[in-house]
Simulated scan of single mutants.
Amino acid sequence: KDPASGPGAGLDSSPKRIRQVVETSLKRLRVDAIDLLYQHRVDPAIPIEDVSGAVKNLINEGKVKHFGLSEASARTISRANAVQPVTAVQSEYSLWWREPEKEILLRCEELGIGFVPFSPLGKGFLTGKIDETTKFDSTDFRNTVPRFTPENRKANQAVVDVLARIAQRKKATPGQIALAWLLAQKPWIVPIPGTRKIERLDENIGAASVELTPSDLGEIEDAASRIAVQGARYSEGAERMIDR
């Protein structure tokens, strides 16, 4: 999606549109090539082979270096990779959203694709800074997420309690334990936590220095297996944009 088109532009992964967006981005960013070009949502109207072919042409022209997918199914990843090797797959993954473990991570490992978890801190919830009494700004998208209703936040506090217990022992924060857990899963998993504050950036970077032993990981796994996380991670409208 081209940012100039606005948030309501919808999906358009036609080869013509992909080229147009890349050309516009190169001019706007004042660079010769885009390091990693993601298709941020799979467009059901355009065969993924056409998308991969369009990106392959741009790579051959030196305008794009690598190709990535986001929220794509294992089948789509394989089809895309058959035309143009996929470098990275970006999807939500954390201790309170583990669906990628069913198929996506296995497919990435088979094909040698890096996995980039977004929302690795559960949209902020796994930091321990949010509870059922937290009030979000009226523009905060979490107001539309079922998992963030006060009732579900209260129920899901059990996940944070597990992280907090380990964090106290490791002299770390719950957020650092959540990130360290992801880093411990596979060497080719690279989470991308977002932040607007320098102190949070420093905290996130510090997670790379937190060592979780097999015993720690087993404790987390055992505790997490006993918790049924409440609430969908997206609104119904946003959920329909996920490739299944």
Rank of each mutant, 00 (worst) to 15 (best):
R28S: 15
L29R: 04
V31K: 11
V31I: 13
D32Q: 13
L36F: 09
H40A: 07
P44M: 10
A45Q: 14
I48M: 03
I48Q: 10
E49C: 09
V51G: 05
G53S: 09
N57M: 04
I59A: 05
E61T: 12
V64R: 09
K65C: 08
H66L: 11
F67H: 05
E71I: 12
A74N: 10
R75A: 15
I77G: 09
R79I: 01
A80D: 07
N81F: 11
N81G: 10
N81L: 10
V89K: 09
V89D: 07
V89N: 08
V89S: 08
E92C: 10
S94A: 03
W96Y: 13
W96P: 15
W97K: 07
R98G: 01
E101T: 13
I104F: 01
R107H: 08
G112I: 06
F115D: 02
V116D: 01
P117W: 04
K123R: 14
F125W: 05
L126I: 12
K129S: 12
K129R: 09
E132M: 02
E132K: 06
K135L: 10
T139N: 12
T139K: 08
R142G: 14
N143T: 06
T144M: 07
T144Y: 10
V145S: 09
P146S: 03
F148E: 08
T149R: 04
E151Y: 07
A155W: 07
Q157I: 06
Q157M: 14
A158N: 10
V159I: 06
V162I: 15
